[in-house]
Design a protein around this nucleic acid. Structure first.
Lengths: 216, 216, 216, 216
DNA sequence: TATGAATGAGCTTTCATTCAT
DNA sequence: CATGAATGAAAGCTCATTCAT
């Protein structure tokens, strides 16, 4: 899980901002580790180093805190995605880069996967009430659509690929392996989290996605 | 969620068996709906129509009950898989049949997906202690390996496909879409659970998997 | 704790008697180990090797079972005391023998001390309702009274010794040391339950009691 | 049982201290009355006039609360003992004073006896984990040793008296009579708790102890 | 005589949340 | 902006006891 690094631009942020951020960081880790119901406000307060009451002062309730954590998590990945500048790459490279980015981001941010699982258990109840997140997500699909169109026109991509389906598949192939690695490891009796296993999986995913996207 | 059907052979099963099964069914639904931490033993007892004490009499603890539910869930899907008789089909049909079965099973058993998510949140703690489940899972990979080998020898399948990776990918493409449908629907602003969306997704998955498996 | 030995006179006691006795033995140990409130009917049934329901069949309730255990315990010690034949001994030997018997009986029957403690915690509620026990206890004081009188007439015993006070003191000096040995050992930082410590304590008790009883 | 008296110096102590003390007082009485297993946290909360949750907030668990009660009880009696200034008295007076103090303290603090019984039932489990209590108890034995030595040098005390044995005996003669008074009363058919019975017992104890300690 | 199934009541403990300052 | 004290509600779990056979 990433730990927040003090931004260099603003040398000493106001204490209130620091407390707020520490709560958010602690909450993200706690929610990721135990789920929404399993998370304990006490533990969040303790590991954030603040009084429990302060959590309510800033965030109102456990559920609202979860919403805030979720919004921050989405903001992070969407920001990172936009910095890929996929639109400027040749289509096959763009696809491969998106695959690799997705894989690596999920590996580096296991808490993101866990938070999404929790949110789905709760039927996206928190997301539904947050407009902030809704607006963040469209640009990616548009970018992907343009890439697919360019690839098709160049005669190297298969026709009629649905960008949303492709995006979901790219995410799925990485997400499921990583999110379900405990049960899969247990069932198949092999550790899926070694470096070697990771690199094999990434190869496989690239093969699958590019095998689908590229025309014969 | 499936509800247990009274076996026709034995018209009135011994009460203890019925109580046990009613608890298991109610627990499965409760755990699927609320996760392990969010599940309430009181609610399980109420919806099973038994005294709460009986749950502890039969299963010992909430965690042990979860383990029992998980074991039953795995037994169900593995049994269903074996009834596909994949080994007797021509390789491409076998793959397609496995894809379709997986997709349909997940659709008909959303509780299975949810239970697995919960178990992964808890790092497969319950599965690790259950040998029963471990032994169930190897045959499938062996069957898949034989299918891939036959396809390769017939010159229609790509060489060097790892059966475990393939199985995980087949599961992933279905699982992620269905398990994360709430957040995905929310983000993309479109309902992923309509009949039409389902049939489009299944088509897409078949395209992806067969596009990968078939040699050019 | 003593375990019941099958009486040789009656080679095969009826099963019902055996079950009854096994429950009593198990209950005695359980009550001694955990007190009345801490004792578990389940554990008694398990260690008696009988169905829990049988305990209620024979004894009616946990409290009635405790009463039965208590009655048996008193019957045992009173029987043993009467076999000392103190009345036939020279007074000083009689006193010493009673002291030694008391000490040894308490050492061999720690459960007796524990049961008495429990009964006192409950203000002798069970004893009060059992006439059986009341009648058992008078003969001892009468015997003691005669011994003291004989000793006084022989000019070797102090005058005006109250037999009940003496009996209580003999019991006290042994009982307290053994019953409270855990706290005493903890407080004084020395193990009071070694053979050496036991023999020192017995010497001390004899010195105290005989120092009191004997005239200067 | 003693009830805590509000200190006059600090007219309104901080609420937290008062709540803590009220819980301790209520717990002491409840544990003394019902033992550890028989004690009910609900009753403690009710009679302390605080919310049940607060007990766990301050003491963590029922067992830890029992430990705290025990520590306070030992602290009380050891403090009282030290205020006797036995070392400054002529040896025979010192012994008599210790006997009388012990007797009176046990009479005024029946809960102390009951708590010790409970702790012994649990094999001094709580005491073992509390170093606080361990350190309190040595000074008394040392004081007693000096008194015995002074008496011996003055030619009025018996030689070679073990101070720990003597202390245990003094305690035993009082403790057993009072702690077991219910069963003794029931068995002997006479009320041991009247004023007259008390004063007779104290006389007897003094006779026994001084009869032992004084040289002929 | 014996038992497996079942339970109502109540246990200790936990939790998110609020009060008072 | 911050906090120690306090709580109502409910959680998981336990217990002596009874039911049905």
């Amino acid at each position: 899980m990433n730990t927040t690094i003090a931004e260099p631009a603003e040398p000493r942020p106001r204490d209130s901002d620091r407390s707020r951020q520490q709560i958010l960081d602690a909450a993200r880790d706690e929610f990721a580790l135990h789920g929404l119901s399993g998370a304990r406000v006490d533990r969040i307060a303790a590991s954030a180093g603040v009084n429990k009451r302060l959590i309510y002062y800033y965030f109102g309730s456990k559920d609202d805190l979860f919403t805030a954590v979720l919004e921050a998590a989405y903001a992070d990945i969407r920001t990172a995605e936009q910095e890929l500048h996929l639109a400027e790459l040749p289509p096959p490279y763009a696809i491969r880069r998106l695959v690799e980015f997705t894989w690596n981001y999920y590996i580096e941010h296991p808490e993101f996967l866990s938070l999404l699982n929790s949110e789905n258990l709760h039927k996206a109840r928190h997301l539904e009430e947050s407009k902030q997140v809704r607006d963040m997500n469209t640009p990616l699909i548009q970018t992907l659509e343009q890439i697919l169109e360019r690839g098709r026109q160049a005669g190297i991509f298969r026709a009629a690929i649905n960008p949303m389906q492709l995006y979901i598949s790219i995410a799925a192939l990485a997400y499921f392996y990583l999110s379900n690695n405990y049960t899969l490891s247990s069932i198949f009796g092999s550790n899926l989290m070694t470096h070697k296993a990771h690199s094999e999986r990434l190869s496989h995913i690239c093969d699958v996605i590019l095998g689908y996207v590229l025309s014969d």
